[in-house]
């Protein structure tokens, strides 16, 4: 091996080793939650004598934790649905409007992602109280819909960017109304983007904390809010079990989005397959 080839190989190994070291810093800390949730101890620690499911029993046996889980699920489902519906319609509108107006609308749609949530939450507090939305499900759902909108807007706009605008004209010239065109032509062609936007909106609501802290009091305690209060008050390993639930749900959502993309690409392969 020549000196320069050795140098190249050495530099490459060094680069890859450093990169994976950084990636290990990203991934490894997450994995600590699993053993801690299975600890046989009564306080937050790694298992000593053996593994135990006691904290999962505590979590699933506690109506308060279960109620938080179902509250979070319901809120995420409603707000993701609303954000997807409203965000997708808006993205489609912008897609065809084009020009400066559409750019301005898209920027506004992204704004909730840019403005710090804490600032939004401070502002929402008074309006929500005034509208009687404070500490109510509609109130939290509404706030989470706003927070979920940018995700839908981004994914749906990206999906629309690959759709030929002439498809829309073709549908109209063939006699389809605007609504028929959206339902029969545009929506089927942006489905993967729409679904991943919906999943992102769901996830963003499911682990949203700040708005939940500001806009709710006694009536509502979402899972993140309960975990947060748990960490603040006393660190009981049940929180690790609750955190594992959040993790599992995240992984499920990721799996779902991989499956959605997989199905879409299989479909594309089928559609784009070579003529027999």
């Amino acid at each position: 091996m020549s000196a320069s080839a050795f140098g190249t190989a050495f530099r490459r190994s060094l680069l890859l080793a450093s990169a994976w070291l950084v990636l290990a810093f990203l991934v490894l800390p997450m994995t600590v939650v699993l053993p801690v949730s299975l600890t046989d101890q009564r306080y937050l620690s790694l298992p000593k004598a053996g593994l135990s499911l006691q904290h999962y029993r505590a979590f699933f046996g506690d109506p308060v934790w279960l109620s938080s889980l179902s509250q979070s699920f319901g809120i995420a489902l409603c707000s993701a649905t609303a954000a997807t519906l409203v965000g997708a319609l808006c993205a489609i509108g912008c897609w065809r409007l084009g020009g400066g107006l559409a750019s301005a609308i898209r920027l506004l749609l992204l704004a909730p992602l840019i403005v710090p949530t804490i600032v939004q939450a401070v502002g929402m507090y008074r309006l929500w109280a005034w509208l009687g939305l404070y500490d109510t499900y509609p109130g939290v759902i509404l706030a989470h819909t706003i927070i979920g909108l940018p995700y839908v807007a981004i994914t749906v706009s990206a999906a629309l960017a690959t759709v030929d605008p002439r498809l829309e004209q073709a549908a109209r010239s063939l006699g389809a109304s605007g609504a028929q065109t959206i339902r029969l032509v545009i929506l089927p062609n942006i489905m993967p983007g729409l679904l991943s936007g919906a999943l992102l909106a769901f996830a963003s609501s499911f682990d949203e904390l700040i708005v939940a802290l500001f806009l709710t009091s006694r009536a509502i305690a979402t899972l993140p809010k309960r975990i947060w209060e748990g960490i603040q008050v006393d660190i009981d390993p049940t929180i690790a079990a609750a955190a594992m639930c959040l993790i599992l749900l995240t992984l499920l959502l990721m799996l779902a989005s991989v499956l959605v993309r997989g199905a879409a690409s299989r479909r594309m392969r089928r559609i784009a397959g070579a003529p027999a």
């Binding site: 030929d164 002439r166 032509v185 089927p188 062609n189 559609i271």
Partner: peptide
């Protein structure tokens, strides 16, 4: 249409 604009779905 130019490019035909057949519905890919």
């Amino acid at each position: 249409f130019q490019g035909y604009a057949l519905f890919p779905n």
